[in-house]
Each structure stands twice: as structure tokens, then as C-alpha cells.
């Protein structure tokens, strides 16, 4: 694996080279494609004039805030459902009726309530992050060694103490996995909302570049969005391994 790392770069390098050659030989000005070198130049331009960083900030702020809100509610619900089997069973139909609603379907509702801007985007991101966090937290709490809960009962811990001192630490590695997945979802949903209606962030930037017939800027944005998604994933995986080591390498449920 270690001596083969360069092999992964061969395919993208060849593709980029071919694209460059094709665009140079073809020679015409395209409205939909650009040569890789032009994309790099366009990337430098939007980076220097600050528009790229502002857009990145907008997207990350809404994705992050939505993740925090939705993740927190999902965490609370997941702990509640995981600890109290009665609540879980009684709420089953209600949850299963709301959960399959696609995240983008709540977009017009959020638009109606909040108008355009951060609040609407955060609400949609929170709605889509809530479900995976809730389901995985529920599974994590339900999978806690029963003897730990017996101990907490024997020690007569209060409900709050039981959650903070026993349940959360025991379920934390799997909850971390849930948040890592939800972070990816948050970014995807934020960009989607921006492309569909919301005039801010990276999604709006790429849409404006397309409408202004600047394929080089558009593709620069596309590559940048890819880099951010990839970077976020790598960063969170590293953090997870650092914080939990082998305990973090648990199976993802559902």
C-alpha cells in the first residue's frame, strides 16, 4: 500500500492531461468547459478577491449551526428513546411518518417561514441531521452493557447523573460516528439548499458562475466544494481515531 500510493494519482493526472490537451487543440471558447490550467487561474482569482472565502464561510457556518442544532435534538431524542423502550415503541409510527420526508421537501416550508438567508438554511440542515443522529444514538444507548445500567441503579444515581456519568460516556464512540456521518450530510444539504434557492455560500457561487457563462470559475468552485467535502471527512476521521482509538472503530448501524 505504502509504496503504491502514486498509483492512485495516475488516473486523475492522465485525465487532467487529456482534458488540457483537448481544450488546447480544440481551441474554441466553450461555455460549459474549461482547461485545467484555466480552472487553476480562475481559482487563484476568486481566492484573491475574497469571494471564495466568503462563500466558504457562509456554507460552513450554516452547515455547522444546523449540525449543532439538529445533532443536539437528535442526541436528546436518541437517549430518551434508547433508555425508555416504552416511549420508543409508542412514538414509532409518528417518527416513521416524518423521517422519510426528503430533506429538500421541507425547503419550501422553511422558505415560507424564514424567508431567504441563514435561518432557513440552518433549519433545513438541522432537520436532515436530526434523523441519522437520533437513530444511531438510540442504537448506541440501546447497546450499552446492561450491567452498567444496573450499577447506576444500585448506586441510586438520579436520572440526569445516570445519563451524564454512565450512558453518555458508554455510548460516546458510536455517537461520534453518528456526528461524523451527519457532518457530511450537513455539507451536502447546505450546498443543495444554496443551489436550489438560497442566495449565499458556495452553492450560490457555483450557480452564479454558471449563469455568468464563466465555466472556469464554475469548475473551480466545483473542485473546491469537492476538496472541502473530502477534507472534512478526513479531518473528522482523524479526530475520531485520535479521541477514541480502537473504540471508535465500531460498525455503523443502519
Amino acid at each position: 500500500m505504502n509504496s503504491d500510493w502514486w498509483k492512485g494519482l495516475v488516473v486523475p493526472a492522465v485525465l487532467l492531461g487529456l482534458a488540457e490537451l483537448a481544450m488546447r487543440f480544440h481551441g474554441s471558447v466553450s461555455m460549459s468547459l474549461a482547461a485545467p490550467t484555466d480552472i487553476v487561474i480562475a481559482f487563484g482569482r476568486v481566492l484573491l478577491n475574497g469571494s471564495l472565502l466568503a462563500a466558504t464561510g457562509g456554507t460552513l457556518v450554516s452547515a455547522g449551526a444546523g449540525l449543532i442544532f439538529g445533532g443536539f435534538i437528535g442526541l436528546l431524542l436518541g437517549i430518551l428513546f434508547g433508555l425508555l423502550a416504552i416511549v420508543d415503541r409508542v412514538m414509532e409510527v409518528t417518527i416513521e411518518a416524518i423521517r422519510p420526508i426528503p430533506s429538500v421537501a421541507v425547503l419550501p416550508i422553511a422558505m415560507l417561514i424564514f424567508g431567504f438567508g441563514y435561518r432557513m438554511e440552518i433549519a433545513i440542515v438541522a432537520f436532515s441531521c436530526l434523523w441519522p443522529v437520533m437513530i444511531m444514538t438510540r442504537a448506541a444507548v440501546g447497546g450499552i452493557e446492561p450491567r452498567l445500567l444496573e450499577v447506576s441503579r444500585a448506586l441510586r444515581l438520579s436520572a440526569v447523573d445516570r445519563v451524564i456519568k454512565v450512558v453518555l460516556p458508554a455510548a460516546l464512540p458510536r455517537i461520534m460516528v453518528a456526528f461524523r456521518l451527519a457532518a457530511g450530510i450537513a455539507l451536502v444539504v447546505a450546498v443543495t439548499v444554496e443551489i436550489a434557492v438560497n442566495p449565499l455560500g458556495l452553492g450560490y457561487g457555483i450557480l452564479v458562475a454558471q449563469q455568468a457563462l464563466q465555466p472556469d470559475v464554475m469548475l473551480a468552485y466545483l473542485v473546491w466544494i469537492g476538496v472541502i467535502g473530502w477534507g472534512l471527512n478526513v479531518l473528522l476521521s482523524l479526530a475520531q481515531n485520535r479521541l477514541f482509538g480502537r473504540a471508535g472503530q465500531v460498525e455503523v448501524v443502519r
Binding site: 443551489i195 436550489a196 457563462l213 465555466p215 464554475m218 466544494i225
Partner: peptide
Amino acid sequence: EFLRPLPASATIPVAIAM
């Protein structure tokens, strides 16, 4: 692995241009 986390909706403007 690099392409996987790319939001699929980000390809919409590119597809519209093409």
C-alpha cells in the same frame, strides 16, 4: 474516495451548462 463526499447537487450547474 475523493469524489464520494462531493455533494451531487453541486454538479447541477455544470450539467445545466453542458
